[in-house]
Amino acid sequence: MQPTPSPPSPSPAPRGVALLFPGQGAQQHLMAAGLYHAHPPFRRLVDEVFEVWGAEGAALRADWLSGSPDVDLDGVHRAQPLLFAVDWALGRLVLDWGVRPAALLGHSVGEVAAATLAGVFTLEEAAGLMADRVAHIASAPAGGMLAVHAAADDMAPYLHSDVVVGAVNAPRQVILAGSEEPLAESEARLRAAGFTCRRTRALSPFHSPALAPAARAALPALSRLPLRAPRLALHSAYTGGPLSPDEARDARFWAGQPAAPVLFGPTLDALLGTGELLLLEAGPGQGLTALAKRHPAVGTGRSTARAMLPARARGDASDLRTLRTAVEALAAEGWPVPDRLPVAAPASTP
């Protein structure tokens, strides 16, 4: 006699999902292009973003998918809108599967994508805000960002009024930001002192006081928007925790972001302190995933970090494989996932 199959053991409640959205510096040539080519739901979402950008949207898409973009992808005109488009579309994709995230946390422009998904802005309002922000930042002095393998507290000797800590990413990773010449001077001194440094892909002094005039100039347009309370838990790397309805409706808060420091590491630390989570990086590269993997909560396995896109854009097959891995991680927790994902044709494997 066949043993009767035992009823499936009740699956434990799935861990909450936290979506992480990368920002300036994470943009890559042909990022997520494989999903755009082979995954129609993603394509429709990205096209929706380009649609609300109007004529500029067509130029954005052309440069994104081009082997030789007309405009430098690392400059503010391309990096910011394209990061927003990819971040937002990946986040929207997960929401459309029926996953209700426990938290959204963005780095830099990633926070605008997160806020749009949380309903603070409509997609049209976000495009307007981004276009306005880009125009003001473009008129600021040239500058950049420098990742340093060091603790924020060790940076004091290398800072001055025009070079500041623009981001704290991890206990041993800070980003200095400032106008070009003073930043280059700080970089030379840091290298001479034996610090490992790496320029972040940015041509503007993001998250430094050099962008304060651009932040002020963005306030009038933002003040006219009917900012709404977030409908999903929106954690801010500027405040270090979940945004209250009043904070989310404060136009000055959003206008000030390009000139304010991003405290991603401490905010992630606080978020991981709230419970066991499945962190999903919804954006290009795996920079935030790598940071999260070093956190003790992830290292011990209480929480898990997965990326939706490969570390480097390597063609359609690699994009699809990575998305599949993320979907499998969600499914293993009992979250709803799409029935079918496209399978890359073997011929497209590089």
């Binding site: 393998h149 990773q173 795996q286 920079g287 790598a290 940071l291 993997k293 070093r294 990326a307 570390a311």
Partner: peptide
């Protein structure tokens, strides 16, 4: 992959 081990480009 280095990123799976928690090593980004700076690390």
């Amino acid at each position: 992959a280095f990123t799976d081990l928690g090593y980004d480009s700076l690390a």
